[in-house]
Design a binder for these strands. Structure first.
Lengths: 230, 230
DNA sequence: TTATTATTGTCACAAATTGAGACAATAAAT
DNA sequence: ATTTATTGTCTCAATTTGTGACAATAATAA
C-alpha cells in the first residue's frame, strides 16, 4: 500500500446490499479501537480501471467475483475532508504517519452499490478494521465522513432503478418464490405491495423461468420456484 | 494553473446542451493547431467543492451562473489515458512540458451535463483552444480520449431523466409555446411525439403557467405562451 | 376419510391512463 | 367573405393498473 502505486486524491466507496430476515442490510467496517464505522472502500492502482479497482475491493471484502455493481455518484465536497479522523484510524492501528501521510490528503470518492446473495458471503475485515458486518439499513451505526449521505443516495438510486432493471433478483438465491421476490421489493421500497398486481407485472416481463414447486411442509398450496437466467 | 493548486488525477468534463434550429447541440472546443476536438472540462482546486469547480468551468465557457447541471458518470478506464495527445496539445500552444507535466498524468474524469438557453450564451475558448462552438449532436467532429462515450452516455441519461424531471424547460427561453417544448422533447428523444397526447400530459403536470397569446403574424390561431416558474 | 386452514395462481371487472382522431376556434392572407 | 394553417379541447378506443373474488392446493385436525 505504497503511495506511488495508487492514484492520489481519488478513492471509492461501496454500499453492499444484502437481504436477510425480511430486511435490507449493508456491509459496514469498524476500525480498530476507534469506534469509527465506515463503508468498505479503497484506492485505484495507477494501471487499473476504476471499475476493476472496485471489484477488487469487493472481492477482498466478500470473496465474490461477478457481483452486480453500479456506479451512482461521485462525492467531492470539501466538507468530507477530515484528516483528523483518518489520522486517528492510522494511529489506532499503529501505522506510520510518515509512510501513510498520503492517506491524510483530500479524496474525491466514486460511490458504487452492489447487490449480492447474503448467504454466499462471509464478510472479511481488512488490516485496519476489527470487523466487516451486516447492518440493517434502518439501524446503522453513526458513519464517518459523508458515508451516511452515500448510503442514502445509494438507496434512493436503487429504488429509482428497481422497476427499470429487475435488479432485485441479484439479492436472492438462484431459485426463489414469487413471495421471496416481493419481500425484496418491499424491503427496498419500504412499503407493502399488492400481491396480485406484483405477480402479474413480474410474469408479464417474461424473463422469469418457472420451475418445480417448493414443498415446505406448510398447510397450503405450494408456490412455484422461479429463476432469472434461462 | 499550478499543479499544487489542484487535485491530481481527477478532472471533470461537461456536456453542455443547447437547442437551436430544431436540433440539439453541444459545446465543443478545438485546440490550437492540432485538429483535436474535446469537451470543455477542467480541474478541481484543492479547497473547492467538485460541483463548484464544474460551475466555475461552465461560467468561463458560457458566462452563465445558475446553470441546470447534473452529474451522470465518472469515467476511469486506463484506456482513456493518452498522454501523447495532451503533450501534442501543450506543445502546439507552446506550453512548457516541465511546468505542465502534471497534465500528462492519468486522470479520472467526473462527467456532468448542463442544459442552457442557447440564446443566452456566447461560447468562450480558453488559453489552449481556438474555438468553443456549438455542434449538432448528430454531426460532431471526432473527439479525443473517450469523449464520444461521454457524450453518448450524457444523451442517454438525459433521455432517461426527461419524463421524471421536466428538464427540457431549461433549454428554452423563459416563455415558450407548447410547440416549442414539443420540439425540444423530439430533439432529445430523436422521435416524433403525438401533439395532443403531449399537450395533455404537460398540462396535467400542473407546473406550467399560461400567459398571453403569441401573435406572430401567421395565418392561423395564435398559441399561448407558457412559463415554468410560478 | 373428511373438513379445516393458509397461501397460491389466475381470472374478472372497475378505474385510470394513454392512443388516435375529430372538430371548432382562431389569425392572417386571399 | 373565404381560405389556410395551427391550436386547444373533446370524445371514444385501447391499454394498463387497481381491487377483489375464487378455485386449487398441501398439510393439519377432526
Amino acid at each position: 500500500m505504497n503511495q506511488k502505486d495508487f492514484l492520489t486524491n481519488i478513492a471509492f466507496d461501496s454500499v453492499v446490499f444484502g437481504f436477510s430476515g425480511g430486511s435490507l442490510k449493508i456491509l459496514i467496517m469498524e476500525y480498530h479501537n476507534t469506534g469509527f464505522f465506515a463503508l468498505p472502500g479503497g484506492f485505484v492502482q495507477r494501471n487499473e480501471n476504476l471499475n476493476d479497482a472496485v471489484r477488487r475491493g469487493l472481492k477482498e471484502r466478500t470473496g465474490l467475483d461477478n457481483i452486480y455493481l453500479e456506479q451512482f455518484y461521485t462525492f467531492g465536497d470539501t466538507a468530507r475532508y477530515k484528516p483528523e479522523i483518518m489520522q486517528t484510524i492510522l494511529e489506532s492501528s499503529n501505522y506510520s504517519l510518515e509512510k501513510y501521510e498520503w492517506l491524510l490528503d483530500r479524496f474525491i470518492s466514486v460511490a458504487y452499490y452492489a447487490l449480492i446473495n447474503y448467504k454466499e458471503v462471509v464478510p472479511q475485515p481488512d488490516a485496519l478494521s476489527d470487523s466487516c458486518e451486516w447492518y440493517d439499513i434502518d439501524a446503522l451505526p453513526p458513519l464517518i465522513f459523508d458515508h451516511a449521505d452515500i448510503v442514502a443516495k445509494a438507496l434512493q438510486t436503487l429504488r429509482d432503478n428497481l422497476d427499470r432493471k429487475l435488479v432485485g433478483i441479484n439479492l436472492l438465491p438462484a431459485r426463489f418464490t414469487m413471495n421471496d421476490l416481493q419481500k425484496v421489493y418491499e424491503a427496498i421500497l419500504g412499503e407493502k405491495i399488492r400481491r396480485t398486481t406484483f405477480q402479474r407485472k413480474m410474469l408479464s416481463l417474461e424473463i422469469l423461468k418457472r420451475h418445480e414447486k417448493q414443498y415446505l411442509g406448510k398447510a397450503h398450496k405450494a408456490p412455484y420456484l422461479y429463476s432469472f437466467e434461462d
